[in-house]
Deep mutational scan, measured.
Amino acid sequence: TRVETATETAWISLVTALHLVLGLSAVLGLLLLRWQFPAHYRRLRHALW
């Protein structure tokens, strides 16, 4: 049971790290898009909202 718990903890930390990385890359990508294509971003936002 001790090994299982350790594996579970490792998986949880791995998944958390993955989610953090994905979230950060998504935010960075959005910022980059907004910085590179302001007109396109505004049009996209206008279409979405």
Rank of each mutant, 00 (worst) to 15 (best):
A17L: 12
T1A: 13
T9G: 11
I12T: 12
L28K: 06
L44Q: 00
A10F: 01
G29M: 15
Q36D: 00
L24T: 05
E4K: 10
L44M: 09
L32M: 13
G23A: 15
A17N: 00
E4F: 13
Y41C: 15
H46G: 09
L18F: 14
R43Q: 10
L48Q: 06
L24H: 06
Y41V: 15
A39D: 15
L30E: 00
W11P: 03
G29W: 07
A10R: 10
L24S: 04
V27N: 02
A17M: 11
L20S: 07
L31Q: 10
S13F: 14
I12E: 01
R2Q: 15
G23W: 09
A26W: 08
E8L: 03
L20R: 00
L18E: 01
R42M: 09
I12R: 11
P38E: 10
A17P: 00
L48G: 01
Y41R: 05
A10N: 06
S25E: 02
T16E: 00
Q36R: 15
L24M: 15
E4Y: 13
E8V: 01
V15Y: 01
A17S: 07
L24E: 01
H19I: 01
A17K: 00
W35M: 15
L28T: 05
L22V: 12
H40D: 05
T7E: 06
G29N: 01
R42K: 13
G29F: 12
L32A: 15
A26C: 13
W35L: 13
E8Q: 05
A10G: 11
I12A: 09
T5A: 00
S13T: 15
A17R: 04
R42S: 14
T9Q: 12
W49V: 03
A6N: 12
T1Y: 12
L28Y: 07
L28G: 02
R34W: 00
L14D: 02
R42T: 15
G23Y: 02
Q36V: 15
T5E: 00
H19W: 03
L31R: 05
G23V: 14
A47P: 04
A17I: 12
L28R: 03
A47H: 10
R34S: 09
V3F: 08
A10E: 12
L18Y: 03
S13D: 05
W11H: 08
R34M: 06
P38F: 07
L20D: 04
L30Q: 02
E8F: 00
R2M: 14
R43M: 08
G23R: 02
V21K: 01
L31A: 14
V21A: 13
L22N: 04
G23I: 15
A39I: 13
F37R: 04
T16F: 11
W49K: 07
L20Y: 02
P38T: 07
R2H: 12
A10I: 07
T9E: 08
A39S: 13
L24P: 05
L33N: 03
Y41I: 11
L44Y: 07
E8W: 00
L24Y: 04
S25Y: 01
